[in-house]
């Protein structure tokens, strides 16, 4: 515990989901000898330097070879180990997609994928290093659980929660930048149960990951204009919280889905798939359009491509007009 009363990992996580994951993984490894981390030359990206020092035998360095890293994880899992394969979101999904599908999902092995630098967090790196299709890739696979923690606190708790998941898990993590806290330090993280971060009766914003905080800002701005916006942190993309979504569809005038991901196949798509069949609802989507992102600082890239608090607010206003 620190002077403020918060657990010591909170300060070390530095408000970054990738570090929340790495710190939780290191703690889990201290309690469970079957835990093994597989790195694709991503020890520092995931904050695993401490893991490496404490458990050098259980940090498998696969090098810059995501396909091999994913296959190794599957093989380890068959022997009763608990592998966490760590990498850059754009590469640990798309590059090793067939290994993820066949060796991990099809063979239904308990492999956790910690995927940092998702979305446009590597803004200046350009389109080769953006991960805007990873949710589509992972959530389309049977057996997968897909989680997008909204902040470092949630990343910590979600990483611990993988203990109870009997199958593969995709944990989408952010980049090397602070992500404002929107959930309590002590959780709780309830897999498959959305956090209602703000009650509201006019419109609902369903957001995940780095779009949760802008959703809260948009809701505050809307309140000033007399509109009551509900904000759901849909941290679990699969399995979706059907009850929360059906309630929102029934109780508010429309739903805005907000995510840092292509419009195709992400959170918004998942919500629309559910509601179109079970409770047709007016929707707006705040997501990456069908284009590759420009190069630039992450916040400016998000703004340029329509993924910001302002865009969420405008979408809500349009639904309530």
């Amino acid at each position: 515990m620190t002077e403020t009363g918060a657990p010591s990992w909170v300060e070390a996580a530095d408000s970054q989901t990738r570090l929340g994951f790495g710190l939780a993984l290191t703690e889990i490894a201290g309690n469970d000898e079957s835990v093994v981390a597989i790195s694709a030359d991503t020890v520092d990206l995931i904050g695993l330097r401490g893991f490496l020092q404490r458990f050098p035998d259980r940090l498998i360095e696969a090098g810059i070879a995501e396909q091999n890293a994913m296959g190794i994880a599957s093989g380890l899992a068959t022997t009763g180990m608990r592998p966490f394969v760590c990498g850059y979101a754009p590469f640990i999904t798309a590059r090793s997609m067939e290994q993820l599908r066949n060796d991990v999902a099809y063979a239904n092995q308990r492999v956790v994928i910690g995927a940092a630098a998702s979305g446009v967090s590597l803004g200046v790196a350009g389109g080769t290093h953006h991960a805007l299709e990873d949710l589509a890739l992972t959530r389309s696979l049977p057996n997968m659980t897909v989680v997008v923690p909204a902040d470092a606190h949630q990343a910590w708790h979600a990483t611990h929660a993988t203990r109870d998941i009997d199958g593969p898990v995709y944990l989408r993590l952010g980049g090397r930048m602070a992500e404002p806290a929107v959930t309590p330090v002590d959780g709780p993280f309830r897999l498959g149960k959305a956090d209602t971060l703000r009650e509201g009766s006019d419109v609902t914003v369903v957001a995940c990951g780095c779009m949760v905080e802008p959703a809260l800002r948009a809701a505050a701005a809307l309140a000033d204009k007399g509109l009551s916006a509900r904000v759901l942190n849909m941290h679990t993309i699969k399995p979706l919280d059907r009850a929360a979504l059906l309630a929102a569809a029934a109780e508010t005038r429309g739903i805005v889905a907000a995510e840092e991901h292509h419009l195709a196949g992400g959170l918004g798509g998942a919500v629309a798939e559910l509601l179109a069949e079970h409770h047709p609802t007016r929707m707006k989507f705040v997501a990456m359009p069908d284009e590759f992102a420009i190069v630039g600082p992450t916040d400016k890239v998000r703004e340029r491509h329509g993924m910001s608090a302002r865009h969420i607010e405008e979408a809500c206003l349009a639904l309530c007009a």
């Binding site: 296959g71 093989g75 380890l76």
Partner: peptide, 12 residues
């Protein structure tokens, strides 16, 4: 795919 999986088993 098999050789990578085999590495994982051997490491296990």
């Amino acid at each position: 795919h098999g050789l990578s999986v085999g590495i994982g088993m051997a490491l296990g």
